[in-house]
Write a protein that binds this DNA or RNA. Structure first.
Lengths: 346, 346
DNA sequence: CTGAAAGCGCTTACAG
DNA sequence: CTGAAAGCGCTTACAG
């Protein structure tokens, strides 16, 4: 079924069918009705490719999930607890405003080839990227070529001026981490360790900064012995504890995300430290699991829905040229008090 | 940049450019090289819509996530722990064989309109459906219209002959539930309750059947008082326990999925029943959370990767007409013993 | 208010 | 081995 056939059946020309579909004003009501009736009867929907070829935009955005890890860790992507809810929210918001979402994964640098292809072949009119490291050259080159891009969790450095042509949506990592650390300090803790995330991602770097800021404000000397590097996955939190407790014995821990906090709790249990009686621990992200671990995990919550909405809305605005708004958004984090932290009395 | 320009620069005709791109054999090596060089230099990728219009398939499949619930529950979709890993796996397998994945959510029956549209307008050449209830008329009509469809978790009833034209990928719910229940029986339990899932979904219905089958085999009388209806979400597991323990006092519980098992564990704790000391509990699905709850949850694990692979591979085969294979696949479930079940000694 | 015609970028018989 | 031409299904100036 195509517009020619519809035209014949309705007794008009293809031009008129097209005018009806595209809501041209200069079609008399009864002609419109007549055509609409035939369209409905035959379930006719114009061929998307033909429309595009004629200049309409694809009404499709890409959602690119980047998760580049060492080979040994590759399997972990499948149970990433963070991308799922974000993805669903992106799809939902996009669909609501008439856009489709094409989802692509990038596990290795060379997978960016797939992404470029769907940009070059006009399948997508723009894309949202999650999980990219700071200053990623692949993303930069895409932006330079003029493609519309929104990025979650990206630092804008002075030398990366090119990012000013994209939409950046970040969590307020700095203040969130500051609040998390301050919360521990207010509970009376002074020996507070930090398990970092990937330091080449904004969320890793900025959360370390927030931790430092809170210590400084409370006149607690920053001590590198209390810092262990992690990479946002459970195992790294688990390993961090074993490494950490060989050197020092903190009374509280701020883990850069919940997954590492949960791994850390397992290790603490093995070492026979009770949480929160012996050691308090706070995470970041408020993933679904955190409510269900024992003790339930105190953490900083950021609205993924809000982040998804900001990405989709602004990307689409930019695609449709309503405005060339390219902006940086900061979504705040909020403390969720649960059972993994305890006041110190001395 | 289009094929005409590439042709001009390379000093050939558009026909030749097209032949190079489509790997026609009748292009001499040096001509091919010459053209390829220009293509590379200009990052030229043929316009996907133009190719489609000329008859190539879209190389895009849909992934339709159906989650129709009452309004009051709508927010829950965002943290569905099940679709995330499956989605990533589908995307990964599809991308590997050169297919894109368009993802769409269906929260209300009328959202199926979106799905039909992308079929009718040729954006997708086929689709994988998850979360649909048994015998869903919307899906049936799509299959009847000749669209290529794979469905996860769907019962094939005699009267639904139309499903024989689609690809069905199911977990082995019956045997899995049978094994789960039998495991409890072997541990010495005789008073075993069951929290059901949505009974209008295959996974809900068939898991109840497996439970019954195991009881029967062990000569334990089936008693409806030990059955509570749930709907696969945590709250329903939680509520089920409160309802259940007003009537009976089972020593073991088989929950139709892990989420309900986890909700149930919370309720048991409130009622001051220790797990597994007072009550044993087993779930189904082995979601990520289950490793981290305390006590860790014994459950039946099904490979979502394998299910994703079966869906993608067979759907693509069917689209490309390699074979008109339309088959039913059954992916087996395997017991994961953890800490939530205990042997009864008497 | 409406139709005939051009053209979006590609592929593929067709002719040579 | 290669180019000119037709045509996929649509939209939109253009002419009336």
């Amino acid at each position: 079924m195509n517009s020619k056939e519809i035209a014949k059946i309705a007794g008009v020309s293809r031009s008129t069918v097209s005018r009806v579909i595209n809501n041209y004003p200069n079609v008399p009501p009864d002609t419109r009705e007549k055509v609409l009736k035939v369209i409905k009867e035959y379930n006719y929907v114009p061929h998307a490719s033909a429309r595009m070829l004629r200049g309409k935009t694809s009404k499709t955005i890409g959602l690119v999930i980047v998760d580049i890890k060492k080979d040994s860790e590759i399997h972990r992507i499948y149970d990433n607890v963070y991308f799922g809810p974000f993805t669903t929210a992106v799809v939902d918001f996009a669909n609501r405003i008439g856009y489709n979402v094409l989802i692509t994964t990038v596990f290795k640098v060379k997978d960016y080839k797939k992404v470029k292809e769907i940009f070059y072949n006009k399948t997508i009119s723009g894309a949202i990227f999650v999980g990219v490291r700071n200053s990623d050259p692949e993303i930069k080159s895409l932006i330079e070529e003029g493609f519309k891009i929104a990025i979650v969790d990206q630092e804008i450095k002075e030398e990366d001026e090119v990012f000013n042509k994209s939409i950046i949506v970040n969590m307020d990592n700095l203040n969130g981490s500051y609040e998390a650390t301050k919360y521990l300090i207010n509970l009376g803790h002074k020996e507070i360790a930090h398990i970092t995330g990937d330091l080449d991602k904004l969320s890793g770097f900025a959360r370390l900064e927030g931790y430092k800021k809170a210590l400084k404000e409370a006149d607690i000397t920053y001590d590198a012995h209390y810092i262990v590097k992690g990479n946002f996955v459970e195992e790294s939190g688990y390993n961090a504890i074993h490494k950490l407790f060989k050197k020092v014995k903190p009374t509280a821990i701020f883990a850069a995300n919940d997954q590492m906090a949960i791994g850390a709790m397992q290790a603490l249990q093995e070492l026979e430290y009770a949480v929160p009686e012996d050691v308090s621990i706070i995470g970041f992200d408020d993933i679904t699991i955190s409510r269900y671990v024992k003790p339930s995990l105190t953490t900083m919550s950021v609205s993924l829905l809000q982040m998804a909405e900001l990405c989709v809305e602004n990307l689409v605005k930019s695609i449709e040229g309503e405005s060339s708004i390219v902006a940086k958004f900061l979504v705040s984090a909020k403390l969720i008090e649960r059972d993994s932290c305890k006041k110190i009395i001395d």
